[in-house]
């Protein structure tokens, strides 16, 4: 019975002439009155109510997150040899991760990718959000939808689509180039593969980040704009001096999400590997490496250790972004 909630009782009882409620109250008191032991029981029960509501989530969280994590961690402490079978090796797999050039090469690739892609994508998203928020644009809904649409395309499909666009024979870019008599640019080469992938991710996720920033912009009280205009600020000044600082937390959020997303890069290189196997190695990104360790080499235990290594790198980088951002803010 929820009527045992003290808050509910008090508000109900404060209402004049609510006889029914009084009865409920007396019932509640009557039920819990005798002894201090049952008061403790009542308190415990009261405290347990939030957890009861949280239970469905907590169960799911334990089954689908905590348990796999423990399982994976347990796995990472063993090594299964072809000759000699499974044995406990403690943190040996982790020591191996530290010296694994294949892993760090992948980390280096995603970092390079992130350094190029994240600023461009967030820049595009911010400009688009500011434009949509400004008064000068007509047909905002269409633009907003159109810009967001690539996010609805599954990343595997997006990669296939861009793989076709980048193609040297059938790709529209190559065909147009040939039609106008210039050598078609090559997109899938060792030197251009990271920008080519960055382009796909930017196309896909700029709209999503734009939407987060746009939502934050909508929440800014209009009095601030009026005040700025009274002070003689131009449209651009309003954007740079009022809007951007106020949606700072939203931008930080998108940056963190992007860092995490970047380190998890998998689908796009995995799909493009089929069309350029000599350009994208099986350890191109840490996730791709983990996948190959587990499903090609059948090294599930080491794959688990590398996964935790990747998680650690992700945690460190995310903290670093937060640290840099907040430090700069406190200095200002």
């Amino acid at each position: 019975m929820d009527s045992s909630s003290p808050v509910a009782l008090r508000t109900a009882a404060d209402e004049p002439g609510s006889g029914d409620v009084t009865i409920v109250r007396s019932e509640a008191i009557g039920r819990t009155a005798p002894g201090s032991g049952s008061r403790r029981w009542q308190r415990a029960r009261r405290a347990s109510v939030p957890y009861l509501f949280l239970a469905p989530f907590l169960v799911g969280f334990a089954v689908f997150m905590i348990f796999p994590l423990i399982y994976a961690f347990d796995l990472s402490l063993y090594r299964t040899k072809i000759v000699g079978g499974k044995s406990f090796v403690g943190l040996e797999n982790y020591a191996k991760v530290l010296g694994d050039s294949s892993f760090w090469e992948g980390v280096r690739n995603v970092l390079t990718f992130g350094l190029i892609q994240i600023p461009i994508m967030l820049g595009v998203a911010l400009i688009a959000a500011l434009l949509l928020d400004s008064v000068v644009i007509r047909g905002k809904t269409i633009f907003r939808l159109g810009f967001f649409l690539p996010f609805a395309v599954p990343s595997v499909v997006a990669a296939l689509m861009w793989g076709y666009m980048y193609g040297q024979a059938f790709g529209p870019i190559a065909q147009i180039s040939r039609a106008v008599g210039i050598t078609p640019p090559e997109f899938l080469t060792s030197g251009t593969i990271i920008p080519a992938l960055a382009n796909i991710s930017t196309w896909q996720f700029a709209g999503y980040n734009m939407l987060i920033m746009f939502a934050a912009l909508q929440a800014i009280p209009h009095e601030l704009y009026e005040a700025a205009r009274v002070d003689g600020a131009s449209g651009i000044q309003v954007a740079t001096r009022v809007k951007i600082p106020l949606i700072g937390p939203a931008i930080v959020l998108t940056a963190i999400f992007s860092v995490i997303g970047t380190l998890q890069l998998f689908n796009e290189p995995s799909v493009l590997r089929a069309v350029s196997p000599t350009i994208i190695p099986p350890n191109f990104t840490p996730n791709l490496y983990v996948y190959n360790l587990a499903f090609t080499n059948r090294q599930f235990d080491y794959a688990a250790a590398v996964s935790f290594g990747l998680a650690l790198v992700t945690a460190v980088l995310s903290s670093l972004v937060l640290f840099v951002v907040y430090r700069r803010q406190s200095l200002r």
Binding site: F64, L69, A72, I260, Q264, A294, S307, L310, S318, S319
Partner: peptide, 19 residues
């Protein structure tokens, strides 16, 4: 920060459970 780290771990757990 710790929540972000945890999210990362959780995501990892998800991908592993999917595996």
């Amino acid at each position: 920060t710790s929540r972000t780290a945890f999210t990362a771990l959780a995501l990892l757990g998800l991908s592993l459970s999917a595996c």
